Amino acid sequence: KKKIKIYIENENGEKKTIEIEVEGDIDEIAKELAKKYNVKIVKIEP
């Protein structure tokens, strides 16, 4: 498992940072999160 930080922006332009532990393809997981929460991924840090 890797701990990563995902910087997101919602439709109101509010920026947030999510810190999660992931296993597998980080890009795939980030895309799923973006779709699920309707946010834009700004940056992903390993």
Rank of each mutant, 00 (worst) to 15 (best):
V42R: 02
G24M: 03
I41C: 07
I41Y: 04
A30K: 04
K15Y: 13
K3R: 14
I20H: 01
G13K: 04
I8H: 02
I20E: 01
N10I: 07
N12E: 09
G24Q: 02
E28R: 11
K16D: 11
T17W: 14
E32K: 12
K36E: 04
E19Y: 11
I44D: 01
K5L: 13
E28T: 11
P46T: 13
E9I: 15
K36A: 04
T17F: 10
D27F: 13
I8V: 13
V42K: 02
I26G: 04
E32F: 14
I29R: 05
K5V: 12
E14A: 08
V22L: 08
K36R: 12
I6G: 00
T17I: 14
K15M: 15
N38C: 12
K35D: 04
Y37F: 09
K35L: 10
N12Q: 12
K16S: 14
N10G: 09
P46I: 15
G13V: 00
T17E: 06
E19L: 09
K5T: 12
P46Y: 15
A34R: 08
E23F: 12
N10Q: 11
Y37K: 02
N12F: 13
K3Y: 14
Y7F: 09
K3D: 01
K16V: 08
E32W: 15
I29P: 00
E21S: 08
V22M: 10
P46N: 11
K36F: 11
L33D: 00
E45M: 08
K5H: 05
V39K: 02
K16F: 15
I4R: 03
K43L: 11
E21L: 09
K1D: 02
E45D: 04
E9V: 14
I41L: 05
A34Q: 06
K1V: 10
N10Y: 15
E14P: 02
I4M: 12
G13A: 03
K2D: 05
I18V: 06
I18G: 00
L33W: 15
V42D: 04
Y7H: 08
Y37S: 02
E11A: 13
K43R: 12
D27S: 09
K16W: 15
Y7R: 04
K43M: 10
E21G: 03
E21R: 05
I6E: 00
E32D: 08
Y37D: 02
E28G: 06
T17A: 06
E23I: 12
E23N: 08
K16T: 12
D25Q: 05
N10W: 14
P46Q: 14
E32S: 10
I44K: 01
Y37N: 03
E14S: 07
K35S: 06
D25F: 04
K3P: 05
K43A: 10
N10L: 15
A30D: 01
A30G: 03
A34M: 09
G24V: 02
E19N: 05
L33M: 07
K16R: 14
Y7T: 14
K15P: 08
K36Q: 06
I44N: 01
E11L: 11
D27V: 10
E23D: 12
I8E: 00
E14I: 09
A34G: 05
K16Y: 15
P46A: 12
A30M: 15
A30H: 03
E21H: 07
G24D: 04
A30R: 05
K3S: 08
D25G: 04
K35Q: 08
V42I: 15
E23P: 03
K16Q: 12
K31L: 12
I8W: 14
E9M: 13
E23Q: 09
E45L: 08
N12V: 10
K40D: 03
I26H: 04
I29N: 02
E9K: 07
K2R: 14
P46F: 15
K2L: 15
K5E: 02
E9G: 02
K2W: 15
E32A: 14
E45H: 05
Y37V: 02
I44E: 02
I8C: 12
Y7V: 09
I44R: 01
G24L: 02
K36D: 02
K43W: 15
I8G: 02
E21Q: 06
A30F: 10
D27K: 06
E21V: 08
K40H: 09
A30E: 03
V42C: 12
I26A: 06
N12W: 14
K36L: 11
E14D: 10
A34V: 06
G24T: 03
I18A: 01
V22Y: 13
E14H: 09
E19I: 13
K5W: 13
Y37H: 05
I6C: 02
E11F: 12
A30S: 05
V42W: 06
K35T: 06
T17S: 07
K2I: 13
V42P: 00
E11K: 13
E11H: 12
Y37W: 14
K43S: 11
T17C: 08
I44C: 05
I18W: 15
K40C: 11
I20S: 01
K16H: 14
K1R: 13
P46S: 13
I26S: 04
E9F: 07
G13P: 00
E19P: 00
K40V: 11
A30I: 15
E23K: 07
K3M: 13
K31C: 09
P46C: 14
I8K: 00
I18L: 13
I41T: 02
K31H: 08
V22K: 02
D25V: 04
G24Y: 03
E21Y: 14
K15W: 09
K43Q: 07
E19S: 07
K43Y: 12
I20V: 09
E19V: 11
P46E: 14
E23S: 11
Y37A: 03
E45Q: 06
E9W: 08
I6A: 03
I18P: 00
E19H: 09
I18K: 01
I44H: 02
L33F: 14
P46L: 15
I41R: 01
E28Y: 08
E11G: 11
V39L: 08
I29S: 04
Y7M: 08
A34Y: 06
K2Q: 13
K15C: 10
K36M: 09
T17Q: 05
E11I: 10
E11P: 11
K3H: 09
I41K: 01
I20A: 05
N38Y: 06
T17N: 03
I44V: 08
E19K: 05
Y7E: 05
K5N: 05
I26C: 05
V22R: 04
D25N: 11
I6R: 00
E14T: 09
N12A: 12
V39C: 13
Y7N: 02
E32P: 00
K40L: 09
E23Y: 13
I29K: 04
E32L: 15
E28P: 04
A34F: 06
D25I: 04
